[in-house]
Simulated scan of single mutants.
Amino acid sequence: MDELFKAIILGIIQGITEFLPISSTAHLVITPWIFGWSGVVNSLSFDIAVHMGTLISLLYCFWKDWINIFFRERKMLLFIIIGTIPAGIAGVAFHDLIESALRHPLIIVVTLILVGFLMLYAEKVGKKLIRSITLSDAVVIGTAQAIALIPGVSRSGITITAGLFKGLDRAYAAKFSFLLSTPAIAGAAMLDFYKSIKIGHSHDYSLFIIGVISAAITGIIAIKFLLSFLQKYPLNLFIYYRWFLAVVIFLLYFFRN
């Protein structure tokens, strides 16, 4: 199959699943595994591209918020910095483990199911009233973002869930989740770029551009959809999808082995 077509499909998947609480890593690991794809879509060029694409999505949707944070809401900036630290430490300490052993399909099945139950419980017990962040909230949600490095967890899923446990309004928790993910995704893009320079990687620019565009456009759509959806509805739809996906992956794993 043409590599550009694969890049478009995976870029679209990345853009959608990075922001919906259904795990982008699960989809990006499972899709090539299901269809037997390999080659350029597993390259650093593509990793950088999809990270850049989702970063563009975040900056497009929240640029006004970032200007306000930098010039007026300095406390929020501090909370975002504090919330970013756990994921940064975990990413550096456990990078090799996350990129190898933890990307097994059965591990993804387990995390899809367990986090789904956690999301369901948070929906039942969370007050969903508060529209402001405290230092405690930043630490808890930031720790949740570190846990999201495990494939199948979902960055948005676990951080929104943590926000619900802290009593945050559902849509506000999602917005803070997206703001918190911005430096993490930027850091991931810079790390991939550094690795590409270190190993002298030659970039496929056509693949890079396609990955950036497809991830950015679908990311913007996903962000706007989720923020609107969570103003009216609970997370249940995504929980049921997670469980359905877990069953599909489980069955495929045993039928293919």
Rank of each mutant, 00 (worst) to 15 (best):
L28P: 04
V40W: 06
A171L: 07
L112F: 00
L55Y: 02
L252F: 07
S38T: 14
I16H: 12
I213V: 15
V140T: 11
F244C: 14
N42R: 12
T17Y: 00
I80F: 03
W63E: 13
A188D: 02
L245Y: 04
G219D: 10
G157V: 01
S154H: 02
S100F: 04
L58S: 07
G15L: 08
L168I: 01
L10N: 08
T31E: 14
D204M: 03
L28T: 09
A171H: 14
R103A: 02
V140A: 12
P234H: 15
V92R: 11
V247R: 06
R72E: 15
G53H: 04
L77W: 10
V153F: 04
I220N: 11
P105S: 13
N236T: 15
A87C: 08
I22F: 06
S136A: 07
R131H: 14
V140L: 11
A215D: 07
L149R: 04
A49C: 02
M52K: 01
G53N: 09
S156K: 04
A122W: 14
I213M: 13
I133A: 02
S100I: 06
I13E: 04
K166E: 14
R155I: 09
L120V: 04
S202M: 11
F46T: 05
V125D: 08
V40M: 09
V115W: 06
I213E: 13
I199Y: 00
L112N: 02
K232P: 09
A246H: 01
G167D: 03
S23R: 04
I209T: 15
K195Q: 08
T111E: 11
A138G: 10
M190G: 10
A162N: 08
L120N: 10
L227K: 04
D169L: 00
I220S: 09
I89A: 09
K232E: 15
I113E: 03
K224I: 10
I239K: 00
F35W: 06
I107R: 02
D47M: 10
A49D: 11
T17I: 04
I130F: 00
D47T: 14
A148E: 01
I16E: 12
S206G: 09
E123I: 12
E123G: 13
L230F: 09
F71M: 08
V109M: 06
V212Y: 00
